[in-house]
Simulated assay, not measured.
Amino acid sequence: MTASDGGECQVLDPLRLDLQLCFALYSASNQMTRLYRPLLQPLGLTYLQYLALLALWERAPLSFGDISRRLGLDSGTLTPLFKRMEAAGLITRTRDRADERRVTIDLTAKGRDLRARAVAVPPAVLGQIPMPFEQIAALKVTVEKLVSALRAAEGA
């Protein structure tokens, strides 16, 4: 990469923070999480709990492994998360009688009912992002392609 500065051309340092894709994605992720926090607080949810509930609201019950794959999170992150959600009365965790290693996560009535209040969160988030919806939608598609390519590279 080069930069022109008064007619001079110089090579940019490849380790500059502002040139790193990883840092741009990390910063965007942190900002999005901060944007969600005040919207989720009245629901009594953390951002990760919200993500887990989104998966469960689509189709519950789900196995622990299914949620892990959907969210890209390991058991070290999900186990304490599910324990807190169970203690809050949002989900149940049940061991499969046929296979004790398999745990099924299901919504309680309280967890299902919370969906009606959470439906206001996505439009509230979008309303705070000063970009046209079309750009946001295109960015989402691009990021999904990046995630898919990174997963493929990881498995290669």
Score class of each variant (00 low, 15 high):
residue 91 I to E: 03
residue 91 I to A: 03
residue 91 I to S: 03
residue 91 I to K: 02
residue 92 T to I: 05
residue 92 T to V: 09
residue 93 R to F: 00
residue 93 R to G: 00
residue 93 R to H: 01
residue 93 R to M: 10
residue 94 T to K: 11
residue 94 T to Q: 13
residue 94 T to A: 08
residue 95 R to N: 05
residue 95 R to L: 03
residue 95 R to I: 00
residue 95 R to V: 01
residue 95 R to K: 10
residue 95 R to T: 03
residue 95 R to S: 09
residue 96 D to P: 00
residue 96 D to T: 01
residue 96 D to F: 06
residue 96 D to I: 01
residue 96 D to A: 06
residue 96 D to N: 14
residue 97 R to S: 15
residue 97 R to Y: 12
residue 97 R to N: 12
residue 97 R to G: 06
residue 97 R to T: 15
residue 97 R to M: 13
residue 97 R to P: 15
residue 97 R to D: 14
residue 97 R to V: 13
residue 98 A to C: 05
residue 98 A to D: 13
residue 98 A to G: 15
residue 98 A to H: 14
residue 99 D to W: 00
residue 99 D to A: 02
residue 99 D to V: 01
residue 100 E to P: 08
residue 100 E to F: 10
residue 100 E to V: 11
residue 100 E to N: 09
residue 100 E to R: 14
residue 100 E to M: 10
residue 101 R to P: 06
residue 101 R to H: 11
residue 101 R to L: 09
residue 101 R to Q: 13
residue 102 R to W: 06
residue 102 R to V: 09
residue 102 R to L: 13
residue 102 R to M: 07
residue 103 V to Q: 09
residue 103 V to I: 10
residue 103 V to L: 04
residue 103 V to A: 03
residue 103 V to D: 04
residue 104 T to S: 07
residue 104 T to C: 03
residue 104 T to N: 08
residue 104 T to V: 13
residue 105 I to D: 02
residue 105 I to V: 15
residue 105 I to R: 00
residue 105 I to C: 06
residue 105 I to N: 01
residue 106 D to L: 04
residue 106 D to W: 10
residue 106 D to M: 04
residue 106 D to Y: 11
residue 106 D to E: 12
residue 106 D to A: 15
residue 106 D to N: 14
residue 106 D to P: 01
residue 107 L to R: 01
residue 107 L to E: 03
residue 107 L to T: 01
residue 107 L to G: 02
residue 108 T to I: 05
residue 108 T to G: 05
residue 108 T to L: 06
residue 108 T to P: 00
residue 108 T to Y: 14
residue 109 A to I: 08
residue 109 A to F: 14
residue 109 A to C: 02
residue 109 A to S: 10
residue 109 A to Y: 14
residue 109 A to Q: 13
residue 110 K to N: 05
residue 110 K to G: 02
residue 110 K to R: 14
residue 110 K to E: 11
residue 111 G to H: 08
residue 111 G to A: 07
residue 111 G to I: 05
residue 111 G to C: 06
residue 111 G to W: 12
residue 111 G to M: 07
residue 111 G to Y: 13
residue 112 R to D: 13
residue 112 R to C: 14
residue 112 R to T: 13
residue 112 R to P: 09
residue 113 D to A: 15
residue 113 D to Q: 15
residue 113 D to I: 01
residue 113 D to C: 06
residue 113 D to P: 02
residue 114 L to F: 08
residue 114 L to K: 11
residue 114 L to Y: 06
residue 114 L to W: 09
residue 115 R to P: 00
residue 115 R to A: 09
residue 115 R to V: 00
residue 115 R to E: 08
residue 115 R to L: 08
residue 115 R to Q: 12
residue 115 R to M: 10
residue 116 A to Q: 12
residue 116 A to Y: 12
residue 116 A to V: 06
residue 116 A to E: 14
residue 116 A to W: 12
residue 116 A to G: 02
residue 116 A to N: 06
residue 116 A to L: 11
residue 117 R to D: 12
residue 118 A to W: 08
residue 118 A to F: 07
residue 118 A to Y: 04
residue 119 V to E: 15
residue 119 V to R: 14
residue 119 V to Y: 06
residue 119 V to S: 09
residue 119 V to M: 10
residue 119 V to W: 05
residue 120 A to D: 09
residue 120 A to F: 07
residue 120 A to M: 12
residue 120 A to P: 00
residue 121 V to P: 00
residue 121 V to G: 02
residue 121 V to N: 04
residue 121 V to M: 06
residue 121 V to A: 05
residue 122 P to A: 11
residue 122 P to G: 08
residue 122 P to C: 09
residue 122 P to R: 07
residue 122 P to W: 09
